[in-house]
């Protein structure tokens, strides 16, 4: 999963897509995932990190993660 190149996320969780001109807002966990994707971390690495740092089990996180990725694809933020 790769993000489009010039996508940037601000500290506040605001995302501006210069390709489409659309603006988005992210919650804390969404922002974190986007940062990891930007660093080209794998799904496994991301999942591991979340399970370690957040009150969440692996199955729930992976389910949520996949849903999140579907939305990113829907918004054409990924390559």
């Amino acid at each position: 999963m790769k993000l489009k190149k010039n996508i940037a996320v601000s500290e506040t969780g605001f995302l501006f897509d210069p390709n489409s001109g659309e603006s988005f807002s992210l919650n804390e966990t969404g922002k974190k995932i986007l940062q990891f994707l930007k660093e080209e971390k794998s799904e496994n690495q991301i999942s591991e990190w979340f399970v370690k740092n957040y009150e969440v089990d692996q199955a729930t996180f992976e389910n949520n993660f996949n849903d999140f990725i579907t939305v990113l694809q829907n918004f054409r933020i990924t390559e």
Binding site: S10, T12, G13, F14, F16, S23, S25
Partner: peptide, 11 residues
């Protein structure tokens, strides 16, 4: 500027 829009939209 997009930064004004960002500030208003998020805060």
């Amino acid at each position: 500027d997009i930064s004004q829009f960002e500030k208003l939209s998020l805060t």
